[in-house]
């Protein structure tokens, strides 16, 4: 088990390193470009040369990369070009806001998807199963950028029930979270539901469930005590991997509702070509994605005794 965990973490670090090299090459390969972005298009050639010399950009590329990497692992990504402050000062509060949004979404998605998935998978091919399947196909077909305006039109324009933006200008306001969370939940729960259903349906065909039913156990007991334990292993992985998708959805939702989070920040940075901010955001995003993948693998192995003891 320990060796497996170490190997998984090793793979994770290797991926991060390769991603960082790619990002560095993409954004900082030409020093002249960096200087123009940082000092602005109207800076003189001399100014740029002085800045490049000062920041050590005239050194060879591998040396520059290693220096950048050394600082990056300590959390120093340089200064944001747009905000004129160290990247970390902008990044961490935004990431916190997104964590709130993500946690609220997950808090709805997980119970909802598991219950629907188990209900659908319990009796494969039943009316409940088919309606839940079709429902999940429909909701996953409506992308976030389409459901957001539609829900906004309904709840804000016609019903005037909810605030239309989530900029949190007057301090943190949970009511402003409702619409963004609703949009994310609608798009994300379908996939988890379908995976839970598939896992549940598979377990229901196994011999030990048939035995449990035949020896006269109450159906409720068979589901709760016997089936669920095994059926919920696969959804755990799916939920962890879903965090990767959530990071994509968050960009759309935060942009639409003007929520000051990580997704909005990375979009803003990319549009403004805020090099150091893009690098920091991308590294954080990839870290979250890779770490959840590793956790999903490790957790799956831990939860599944058939793998753990083999």
């Amino acid at each position: 088990m320990l060796i497996f965990v170490m190997r998984r973490i090793g793979a994770m670090v290797l991926t991060m390193v390769v991603v960082s090299i790619l990002l560095f090459l993409l954004l900082e390969y030409s020093p002249g470009n960096v200087a123009t972005k940082v000092l602005g298009p109207y800076s003189s050639e001399e100014q740029r040369q002085i800045w490049l010399e000062e920041k050590g950009y005239n050194d060879p590329l591998p040396l520059r990369y290693l220096r950048w990497l050394g600082k990056a692992v300590q959390g120093d990504f340089g200064d944001s070009i747009k905000y004129k402050v160290p990247v970390s000062e902008v990044l961490w509060p935004r990431l916190g806001n997104t964590a709130i949004l993500g946690a609220a979404t997950m808090a709805v998605v997980i119970p909802l998807a598991l219950v629907l998935g188990v209900l659908a998978g319990m009796r494969e091919g039943s009316g409940t199963d088919r309606s839940i399947s079709v429902l999940s196909i429909i909701t996953t077909s409506v992308p976030e950028f389409a459901s957001a305006p539609m829900l906004q039109a309904f709840f804000v324009f016609y019903l005037a029930l909810l605030p239309g933006t989530s900029s949190m200008i007057g301090g943190f306001n949970p009511v402003e979270l409702i619409l963004p969370v609703m949009v994310l939940v609608l798009y994300d729960f379908g996939y988890v539901t379908r995976m839970t259903r598939a896992s549940m349906a598979e377990v229901m065909t196994t011999h030990y469930i048939r035995t449990a039913v035949l020896k006269g156990l109450p159906y409720k007991m068979v589901i709760m005590k016997h089936a669920l334990r095994n059926a919920l292993i696969a959804p755990f992985t799916v939920v962890m991997l879903q965090i990767n998708w959530l990071l994509s959805g968050v960009i759309v939702v935060e942009f639409f509702f003007a929520y000051k989070g990580f997704g909005f920040l990375i979009l803003d940075a990319s549009l403004n070509k805020d090099i150091f901010l893009i690098e920091a955001c991308a590294m954080v995003a990839v870290f979250v994605a890779v770490a959840t993948q590793a956790l999903a693998d490790i957790g799956y192995t831990y939860l599944n005794p058939r793998i753990r003891f083999s």
Binding site: T15, L247, S248, G249, L267, S270, I278, A282, V286, A289
Partner: peptide
């Protein structure tokens, strides 16, 4: 496999945004 693992480790929209913005 390694190359595809690296590309797939990006949250997909982050990848699109960075590529298109660049």
């Amino acid at each position: 496999s390694f190359v595809s693992n690296v590309i797939l480790s990006f949250p997909v929209l982050v990848l699109y945004v960075i590529i298109i913005a660049t």
